[in-house]
């Protein structure tokens, strides 16, 4: 087969005068020759940094037990990641920080008194099934931490829903179990003061109680540019609007939007799980749909579902739609003609 490229190839084969001054070889690559300074580990490590305020808050409220859970989850996640990469003969990349994030986020969704063996099991499932079975970083469909948490929820339904009061409000006697603000709302119709929710002075999972600490971390990430503002805004916004509608209809029966935003895992989910790059859509429209539908789902589960908290399942549910959203919400190509009439 005659090919025009052959002529060019002949031209190229003519002798070349090599190199620059002093016979030094020049480096030849394809453009662009200029890249920004971002990198995957840098992003991941910044996210870890952004999680510090919430981690500190949980250690303050729940004591060293919280710290232990963080250490266990991070360690187990890293070990699982290492084992999988080693076994699959892939480059060992446990220092890219992604497994650390999974470990921290998983720990944050657990009750402070959660047993160590459960934390290890959840971490192994999160990284093993939630991430490595899909092919590792970038290929997983579901947020690994949430998948680990969902697995634990199904595996240890009692342990994952047994809460303790924070140290700061614990009565002198051993308070064995406590109810989360959302459970109080759902089963007893009691509302927790918003100020307590805001600071985190309530029972709940490690990382989700202190709205202010999460907000600090989230805004720091936003400032660094690693959070797509559409996602937390869409998620929290739709939660507020949707729960606000019910609140306006019957304020005695439904809690106000502020309660919804600050109670349970809404803040943590909105800032650190909805925004997970791998498992959120890549297109503008897709991101809006993802976040807004997720927020509505969370409120629906909270108000009408069997469970007090809906953030985890709402995010996992929407994760499943991400490939579909990416496919069908492609941005308009610049100058695209509306209808291909020909």
């Amino acid at each position: 087969m005659e090919d025009k490229t052959i002529d060019k190839a002949e031209l190229k084969s003519a002798p070349e005068t090599p190199a620059g001054p002093g016979g030094e070889r020049l480096f030849v690559t394809s453009s662009p020759h200029f890249l920004n300074k971002e990198s995957v580990p840098k992003i991941m490590h910044t996210v870890v940094l952004a999680l510090f305020p919430a981690m500190a808050a949980s250690v303050y409220f729940f004591g060293l037990r919280a710290l232990l859970l963080y250490v266990i989850c991070i360690g187990a996640c890293l070990a699982t990641e290492y084992a999988f990469q080693k076994y699959r003969k892939k480059p060992i990349k446990i220092y890219d920080g992604s497994a650390i994030i999974t470990g921290i986020l998983l720990a944050m969704t657990l009750p402070p008194g959660f047993p160590v063996f459960g934390a290890i099991l959840g971490s192994v499932f999160a990284i093993g099934v939630g991430k490595q079975l899909f092919g590792g970083l970038g290929f997983n469909i579901f947020n690994p931490a949430l998948l680990g948490r969902a697995f634990l929820m199904a595996t240890y339904p009692v342990l994952t829903t047994t809460w303790v009061e924070p140290r700061t409000v614990q009565k002198a006697v051993d308070a064995v179990s406590a109810a989360t603000p959302l459970a109080l709302m759902k089963f007893e119709g009691k509302l927790t003061p918003v100020l307590d929710l805001f600071t985190g002075n309530v029972a709940g999972s490690l990382g989700e109680t202190s709205a202010i600490a999460i907000l600090i971390g989230g805004l720091f990430l936003r400032y660094k540019g690693y959070v797509n503002w559409k996602l937390p805004l869409g998620y929290l916004g739709s939660m507020a609007v949707f729960s606000g509608i019910f609140w306006l209809i019957d304020p005695s029966k439904y809690p106000d939007p502020l309660f919804h935003l600050f109670a349970g895992g809404a803040m943590l989910g909105a800032w650190f799980m909805v925004t997970d790059m791998v498992t959120s859509p890549t297109t503008d429209l897709g991101q809006w749909i993802f976040a807004i539908t997720g927020g509505i789902m969370a409120v629906v589960i909270r108000l009408f579902g069997g469970l007090p908290e809906g953030v985890m399942y709402s995010i996992l549910f929407m994760n499943a739609f991400v490939p579909l959203l990416n496919k069908h919400t492609r941005p308009r190509v610049f100058g695209a003609v509306k209808a291909k009439a020909e």
Binding site: F27, T29, H33, F34, L35, E38, S39, V40, I43, K93, D96, G136, L137, G138, F139, N228, M277, V278, T279, S280, P281, T282, T283, D284, Q287, N326, R330, P331, R332, V333, F334, A336
Partner: peptide, 27 residues
């Protein structure tokens, strides 16, 4: 300094930076 362009690249983490940057609206 050729270090500006590393030889190895990581898997895509779907961060969507490229989609947000593409002036032509591509993915």
């Amino acid at each position: 300094s050729g270090k500006i362009k590393p030889e190895k690249y990581d898997p895509c983490i779907k961060c969507a930076s490229c989609v947000a940057a593409c002036p032509m609206g591509l993915m």
